[in-house]
Design a protein around this nucleic acid. Sequence first.
DNA 1: TAAGCTTGTTAATGGGCATTAACATCGGCG
DNA 2: CGCCGATGTTAATGCCCATTAACAAGCTTA
Lengths: 194, 194
Amino acid sequence: MTTRPAGADVANPRRAEILAAAAELFARRGYHGASIGDLGRAVGLTGPALYRHFSGKEAVLAEMLLDISERLLAEGLRRAAIADPGQALDALLRWHIAFALDNPALITVHERELDNVPEPERHRVRRLQRAYVEEWVAVLHRLRPGLPDGSTRAAVHACFGLLNSTPRSATGLDREAMAGLLHAMARNALEAPF
Amino acid sequence: MTTRPAGADVANPRRAEILAAAAELFARRGYHGASIGDLGRAVGLTGPALYRHFSGKEAVLAEMLLDISERLLAEGLRRAAIADPGQALDALLRWHIAFALDNPALITVHERELDNVPEPERHRVRRLQRAYVEEWVAVLHRLRPGLPDGSTRAAVHACFGLLNSTPRSATGLDREAMAGLLHAMARNALEAPF
DNA sequence: TAAGCTTGTTAATGGGCATTAACATCGGCG
DNA sequence: CGCCGATGTTAATGCCCATTAACAAGCTTA
């Protein structure tokens, strides 16, 4: 049920195309609000054609979330390893902001649809998400050692809320201005005297 | 289609009970992920019983979002009217944070499900939401007159993202600590040099 | 060139769901 | 007492949807 149909190697362009279209639809209408027919139509196919590339609708979502979580964590680990905590935090902010600005649909789905991932994969996604958060928590902890653990964690979550709000704002700001604004706001929020 | 069945005055306890249960379900599973049967069961009824109180599933969502938007705006107007912009901002922050902490499900639905509201009401909700945002924008503009309009608006949206992330974090912090943390983070974010 | 894999398509199939119909109960009020 | 509106319930009804079946066309390759 989770296995990919034959001949579906990692870099299959059709698969990538479907995943991209599905991300837009899931983000805009929610997992339950987008049908298999919608997904197919979005890439110029009929609904059942999807089954040549994925074992089902859930498998599309599962692969999407796994991919996002892995990408976020991989680069997050790299940047969190920077020795100076202030620089590490800035590097993490730059990474997350760039990802959110470049992939608004993915960020939205990643934030909302975990519950619809079937069980073996849901657990893996959860682990990856948690590990990513922990990198941020560790950096913030290095930057502000006195902070209670619960506050550190809550601050990181709130910071994600701020950064991930991007996809839903759509103001007239260009990309660079938006990136700078989010960076400054997040940085100041994390340094607030709470 | 939007009209309420007879005998359904504003303060009908059954209606309120259904709206509360629906908020939880819509927040947890999304509008399309919660069935009429689920809503009924959540208040000890069968599915079709709902039609004695609402004209349909969409009407439940519409009334819910209208109610939220009206409540947010009404009190928002009051607090934004405070003469000193710094005090006005603090008052707005206290209001929004209290609302989000007290009604996490409502905040989530309000943020996500506007697209599923049927058309006459969707427009009204949009107007109310926009008016609420404009109160914040106006206060921030008074506080930081030099800021370009697009930046002010983007900052307010990002601030909402921060505040509304509350329902999805569930850290071990108690209510007062969480309120204080969110207030400090948001206030600092809005004062950041962007 | 012919078998066979890949990738599609259009018809089932079967389940779930929103909504409506038909039927019950019950409390108030004439 | 006897009617009736309010509020429920359990059976349709009809649509949408995920998934599968049956069938076709095109490439690759022996």
